[in-house]
Amino acid sequence: MAAPKFLTTEQGRSIAYHAHAGAGVTLVFLGGLKSDMEGTKAIHLEAWAKAAGLGFLRFDYSGHGESSGRFEEGCIGDWHEDTIAAVSALTTGPLLIVGSSMGGWQALLLAKVMPERIQGMVTVAAAPDFTEDGYWASFSAAQKAELEAQGYVELPSDYMEPYRISKRMIEDGRNRLVLRQPLDLPFPVRCLQGTADTVVSTDTALRLLQHASCVDMRLNLVKDADHRFSDDACLKLIETSISELL
């Protein structure tokens, strides 16, 4: 396996990445919270893009994978800055963005910054505004007091060790919300969502579909698919969705 390369951002963060050039569109994979660029979907899509002659970029946000920083110190805004830096420095021409879970939120934030470069977008279990609608909305009075007193709370995860959610992440997330203001997506969008997802609900997927302004936006609900969305059938569906937009 090839070693990653590293990009230093304006903020001084070191971002690990893998990229290759191709013809025409570049696929950019944006991973989820506490995921890294070695996940099943990222690796699969990299091989698929290479076979199709397309450019591809995958990277680790700061505090994730092999990039610098600690997860507990990061927030949505930091990872948005990392995304802008990586895409700006490491790609040229039109983009097709694939955003998974928190990466779906990052994809929507990126669309606000460089809509003219995005040819299409595929979201997989997109989780926009989850710091407010998922974490904060579900915190008990005791958890909110704990967040204020010590600056973080720990939450269990179905997939890994507990998340440590910082007060900074909650407060910064409020400055990045996309479902409470106009969301213009001037390119085709395909949203994929599993009905057995215990992390992101189908209600979130429907809310995004109803909220965004987009002339060609479709939601595909997959019965019994979970949040990973990484079995053979789900990977094939991601491929098909990308192909529609190329």
Score class of each variant (00 low, 15 high):
133 D>H: 10
113 V>Q: 13
103 G>L: 04
112 K>G: 07
119 Q>E: 09
142 A>H: 10
137 A>W: 09
138 S>N: 15
141 A>L: 14
122 V>C: 10
118 I>T: 06
110 L>D: 01
128 P>V: 03
106 Q>C: 00
140 S>C: 12
125 A>M: 09
124 V>L: 12
134 G>D: 11
108 L>F: 08
116 E>I: 09
111 A>Y: 00
132 E>S: 08
114 M>K: 07
120 G>N: 01
120 G>K: 06
123 T>Q: 06
144 K>Y: 11
110 L>S: 03
111 A>D: 02
141 A>R: 14
141 A>I: 13
131 T>V: 14
125 A>L: 08
108 L>K: 01
104 G>S: 07
111 A>I: 01
120 G>T: 03
136 W>E: 15
144 K>L: 15
141 A>E: 15
120 G>E: 05
134 G>K: 04
143 Q>F: 13
140 S>W: 11
107 A>H: 00
108 L>Q: 04
121 M>A: 07
129 D>S: 04
122 V>K: 09
112 K>S: 04
138 S>H: 15
139 F>W: 15
121 M>Y: 10
134 G>F: 09
134 G>A: 10
139 F>C: 13
123 T>F: 01
108 L>S: 03
112 K>A: 04
135 Y>M: 08
115 P>A: 05
117 R>Y: 01
128 P>Q: 05
114 M>A: 12
124 V>K: 08
110 L>R: 05
132 E>C: 02
144 K>S: 10
121 M>K: 09
130 F>D: 02
122 V>I: 13
130 F>Q: 02
103 G>W: 01
128 P>F: 03
113 V>G: 00
123 T>K: 03
135 Y>C: 11
140 S>K: 13
115 P>D: 06
109 L>W: 04
119 Q>I: 02
109 L>M: 07
117 R>Q: 08
122 V>Q: 07
123 T>G: 07
132 E>Q: 12
123 T>Y: 03
127 A>D: 04
110 L>Y: 14
139 F>Q: 12
118 I>L: 11
118 I>H: 07
110 L>A: 11
121 M>S: 11
113 V>R: 11
130 F>L: 05
104 G>I: 00
116 E>C: 10
127 A>G: 09
118 I>K: 07
116 E>K: 14
124 V>N: 11
125 A>R: 10
144 K>G: 10
129 D>E: 07
143 Q>M: 15
114 M>S: 10
140 S>F: 12
127 A>R: 03
133 D>Y: 09
120 G>S: 02
122 V>F: 07
120 G>H: 03
111 A>E: 00
111 A>N: 02
135 Y>W: 15
143 Q>A: 15
109 L>F: 06
106 Q>D: 02
126 A>P: 03
111 A>S: 14
123 T>W: 05
132 E>N: 08
121 M>R: 10
129 D>Y: 01
139 F>V: 14
105 W>S: 00
133 D>S: 13
137 A>D: 13
122 V>R: 08
118 I>G: 06
125 A>C: 14
118 I>Y: 08
124 V>H: 11
128 P>R: 02
133 D>M: 12
122 V>T: 08
107 A>E: 02
103 G>Y: 03
137 A>V: 04
124 V>S: 09
122 V>P: 09
137 A>E: 13
120 G>F: 01
108 L>D: 01
141 A>D: 14
105 W>R: 01
